[in-house]
Nucleic acid binder design. Structure first.
Ligand SMILES: [Mn+2]
Ligand SMILES: [Mn+2]
Ligand SMILES: [Zn+2]
Ligand SMILES: [Zn+2]
Lengths: 155, 155
DNA sequence: AGGAAATTGAAATTCATTTTCATTTAACGT
DNA sequence: ACGTTAAATGAAAATGAATTTCAATTTCCT
């Protein structure tokens, strides 16, 4: 039973259905398959990657639909859009309440997540000094992960 | 005498010349003009915007040269490349030693800069807990600046 | 089942960025 | 100053991810 951030896959698919119904959108075979694959993947995945993954089993599902479904998941609150330094749009399963930031290795590309309340509070404090009301923020660290850092030191 | 971050324009143009010479690159009329306009502008400017600005006075200078010169300035350490949420590459005059982060208004687009040592230290601390060695980071706040925040409250 | 409205997927479009290539120009030695 | 060579320039073309278009298909509701 693959447990993912923010709830299990079944709960989330319910949430998607509710979202669709509420907006007058339709439940389709394609959306079901894509949401399923996506929600259990737990990655920071691009539309292209997601398309490749889905189309292995389902040749008839097109890239455009995958692309649109990921956008839809983001709008429904089940996914978050992220753009890191490579300038590709990535999606990750995430409920609206969750929040975390990222450590990105510039050597191996690994992405580590973290959550730090002190950091969030300090951000609010800094913004407050400028009379600035934060809606979202982007906090990313680029450098060497512990694996790549070790390897480098040995050289 | 327009004083810009990280030194005056003349100093910086010296630095550029040194960089060019050291690498076997050439000093050209175009590079001179573009660097001049750019260094005294002090903005977060796109290649397109910079091109428009430059080409008003110098119709013969092409977009490609502006684009390439901005990249060159970045490599020489006189400019920093930034990509904010609109996904356009912007350049700002900046010496290598300087560092600051940004508050970006999602209503009026204004960009405010700040520097916070506590924040920088906390970032190091967090990274350290993962054995992660930071090379660069991206810290951006998106929300309402004090002007737009006020206006909104009045509605 | 019937019909309106949404969805799909292939292809086309957009748009910033980057590359190509023929021509021009700067730098250096003579 | 002159010639040589390598770099720079600028127009145009290419790239590539993101987005839109549109005819055909599917879903949803009565
Ligand atoms: Mn994440
Ligand atoms: Mn800045
Ligand atoms: Zn790594
Ligand atoms: Zn504002």
């Amino acid at each position: 039973m693959p447990q993912t951030k923010g709830g299990n896959t079944i709960d989330r698919k319910e949430k998607l259905k509710a979202f669709l119904k509420q907006r007058g959108f339709k439940s389709t075979r394609q959306r079901d398959i894509i949401a399923d694959e996506f929600l259990k993947s737990g990655e920071h995945i691009t539309a292209e990657e997601m398309y490749k993954k889905v189309s292995r089993k389902h040749r008839d599902i097109g890239f455009t639909t995958v692309y649109r479904t990921l956008k839809l998941l983001a709008k429904s609150g089940l996914a978050t859009e992220r753009v890191f330094a490579d300038n590709l749009t990535r999606y990750e399963p995430l409920s609206a309440e969750d929040h975390h930031d990222h450590l990105i290795c510039i050597n191996c590309g690994s992405i580590t997540e973290f959550e730090d309340l002190k950091l969030e509070r300090l951000q609010e404090k800094i913004a407050g000094e400028f009379g600035f009301r934060i809606v979202t923020h982007k906090m990313e660290f680029y450098g060497y992960c512990n694996v790549c850092g070790e390897r480098q030191r040995k050289k």
